[in-house]
Nucleic acid binder design. Sequence first.
DNA 1: GGTCATTTTCAAAACGGTTTGAGAAGCGGC
DNA 2: GCCGCTTCTCAAACCGTTTTGAAAATGACC
Lengths: 351, 351
Amino acid sequence: MATLKDISVELGLSVATVSRALNGFPEVGARTRTRVQEAAARLGYRPNRSAQRLATGRSGVVGMIVKLRADMSADQTFFDVITSLTAELAARDLDLVLSVDQGDDPVAPYKRMLERDLLDGFVLNAPVPNDPRPGFLMSRDVPFVMHGQAHDAPDYAFFGIDNAAVSADAVELLTTLGHRRIALINGEARFAFAAEREAGFRAAMAAGAGAVPDSAVADGPPTENTGYTLALSWLSGRTGPRPTAILCATTPVAAGVLRAARDLGLSVPGDLSVMAHDDALPNIRPAHFNPALTVTHAPLREACAPLAQMLVDHLNGAPPARLQTVIRAGLIVRASTGPVPKGEDIPWQIP
Amino acid sequence: MATLKDISVELGLSVATVSRALNGFPEVGARTRTRVQEAAARLGYRPNRSAQRLATGRSGVVGMIVKLRADMSADQTFFDVITSLTAELAARDLDLVLSVDQGDDPVAPYKRMLERDLLDGFVLNAPVPNDPRPGFLMSRDVPFVMHGQAHDAPDYAFFGIDNAAVSADAVELLTTLGHRRIALINGEARFAFAAEREAGFRAAMAAGAGAVPDSAVADGPPTENTGYTLALSWLSGRTGPRPTAILCATTPVAAGVLRAARDLGLSVPGDLSVMAHDDALPNIRPAHFNPALTVTHAPLREACAPLAQMLVDHLNGAPPARLQTVIRAGLIVRASTGPVPKGEDIPWQIP
DNA sequence: GGTCATTTTCAAAACGGTTTGAGAAGCGGC
DNA sequence: GCCGCTTCTCAAACCGTTTTGAAAATGACC
């Protein structure tokens, strides 16, 4: 491997000049620059990354710590995100160090990784209400971007979807179709996005369809089973009046709801309308559900390019408060939503 | 971040002494060593990877490249492995850089990562027959360990289970119970482990139960659906004589087989015996299947400690041909296997 | 030809470790 | 008190870059 020194000896220049010539600094003469570039090419020079990193203090490596959940529910979304994220980071010359955390202290794994002094920054995901991680990282001046945040006007970089709007858009579509008794199967309560969705849901309902009793809002892991179980209990009518529409946090949950309706002999959308938020995971096709599922739609993987770019900008000194993006999910109306059944346009009763 | 210099100043020693103390060199006094170690712990010292790599040529970072499959079937095993692997590597002071590959060329992503000049070595997984990766890495003198290899007497480091024995042990149990028509739902044919399992299956069958027609061996992604569909077709009897026992590549496949049997009104193990190989994924409990599943059992995550250790040894200069471990899966007999139904102990007919 | 501003180049100091070669301290034996 | 031996510690060199501060070369102008 040729080094800067080899080139400098070859040309009778100093390493400093060679370095500047190759890195495009303005203060080196045009003739010298071409001479250097040519010599570098001829000798097959490639900068030693470790030396570069040691000198610049930057490693070109960012970290991500995924929290292990007992039910492993994050698998699919996690894999989808990792796939796009590593590709987008690689395109920007960054590598991703991954660590899986099983502990209780949410900041401990970040502390450990930082001690290694290997990382330039982090990608965080799955924020929870009052998440302690941003505060910790900011106190240490460690750059990071948060995936999945959209509110609380934080003064750090984030990318997320407008979760209140996700709920509001869905509720608006359904109320326009005459629905009043809309139930929500939400994401797990400990995540920030779920709180935002529920708040958006309740607000939109109060504005258009009437207040919602607690019994019409439930949550659980984003699995088919969650949807099946909850829908079965609601639709059996044993727990009070039935919903005429069910809003689901994810498409697998909606699949469970559809199965429950089928098992109970209810037609969708004749007797029940079903909607979900669609993260666009590659192995789930809500367009091929039976009936095709009406969704709000925001592909998780589309967050990765902005996240990678924001992190790069952040590392290059951009003020993080400027690196904030909230996108609005799209609305795709398919065949699982329809007008409210005759005579069923009666709001929830609040006990 | 604390540096060697910080510690040396703190203790009034030279950086050289501190370095040697921490790296276990014999020429530093016991008292000094403990003083240094304690100070290092107190200040949260961790060596700077870039500096270390510059000085030694080693970074303490290893890479793993996972291949994205269209059906995402690897999710669960992948997550389980990553969890244990990052923990085991961290315990040995190694970090893991992860990359997801979607391309066609199996070695291109390794080439790309190597150009980054960050990694000391790799963990490979999911070998395929004639896998080009080992040859490529060996030609570049890049250390690596392979997860899931067990045969072909390769001259590199690997850890795997004896897949032929997995099949043979299962077949032996079932033939002892009188079964002769045993069918195999194998892992996907493109993987080396599946070829080994099929070869082991056919050999054990030929020795104990009679030759196996191609129609009694099938494969597919390791999902519940694969098991359900294949079992339904076999057990309906439309495709020829029914198997009296079905051997499954994974526990989700077996769950599908059990559901198919239930749907057809067949009792397990009265009418049909079912077995699977169990990777011991944390969210699947074959002991709680109904009936509890008889399995060959080899927890994927238990491969991670040996893999990490072998990689460390390899990095420290151990000859890779010595770093080869093949373990034999355990056999756990539960309630899903029983004697062959009366009069059904008739071997397969080869067309 | 001298002065000044403007390129252009250089030597040296980082960055944070490891490794070398040499010196100081401790100790037993004479 | 001196010698030789071991044990411990140190200053300095090194890895290959980037970056700093200063010096040298160039050119324009009077």
